[in-house]
């Protein structure tokens, strides 16, 4: 019967289907252009702080965003030199989210992790961090937070969460007062 001779092809098809499924799941994050990092990196220039407009009904840049959050982004490329991110102290909750190119949050913190009331973060590659640490004076305490970026490109999200609707302008001022700029290793 010729039909029974199709069985091996059927199993071969299902086996190949399983492989196609696993491969497509694994490569999807690196080829997707709909991920948050790709969307945010397309919005503004590299290594510059950009405050985003307030999320409005049906006009949010990112789905499932918190409408109480004032948001600024800093698309980065630290191939040439590390990035310095600073945010002054304030009453509003402030969070930093570090996302790498190709997707994936590699670090996040809130202003609970502040040093002397303000957030002072240096984002660097592995090699840059080694140089920075090699240059550290021995008798001085480090007052900055150093974060290793697994990849040289990505985006930093700076968000301030207003505790009441009337305080939203304070949250907006808080993110607008943040800064992000490339900084040469001293």
């Amino acid at each position: 019967m010729p039909v029974t001779r199709l069985w091996p092809w059927l199993f071969a098809g299902l086996f190949l289907g399983g492989i196609a499924h696993l491969v497509s799941i694994l490569i999807l994050p690196s080829v997707s252009r709909q991920d948050a990092t790709s969307i945010l990196r397309a919005l503004g220039p590299i290594n510059t702080l950009l405050t985003l407009p307030r999320s409005r009904p049906q006009a949010s840049v990112i789905p499932f965003g918190d409408p109480n959050a004032a948001v600024a982004i800093c698309p980065f490329d630290i191939t040439a030199m590390p990035l310095r991110i600073r945010a002054p102290a304030g009453d509003t909750i402030l969070t930093l989210t570090f996302m790498q190119g190709g997707g994936g949050i590699f670090y996040s913190l809130s202003d609970k992790a502040n040093l002397k009331g303000a957030l002072d973060v240096r984002l660097a590659t592995d090699d840059q961090l080694q140089t920075i640490e090699g240059n550290d004076p021995e008798d001085q305490t480090i007052t900055e937070l150093r974060i290793r970026a697994p990849r040289a490109t990505g985006v930093v999200l700076i968000r301030a969460i207003s505790s009441e609707a009337a305080l939203y302008p304070d949250a907006e001022r808080r993110v607008a007062a943040a800064s992000c700029a490339p900084e040469r290793i001293q």
């Binding site: 994050p29 997707s32 990112i62 789905p63 949050i105 996040s108 809130s110």
Partner: peptide, 14 residues
């Protein structure tokens, strides 16, 4: 997450 475009909340934030 790569398809939805969401930014999930991670442990450092809450």
């Amino acid at each position: 997450i790569a398809r939805s475009g969401e930014i999930p909340m991670s442990a450092g934030e809450g």
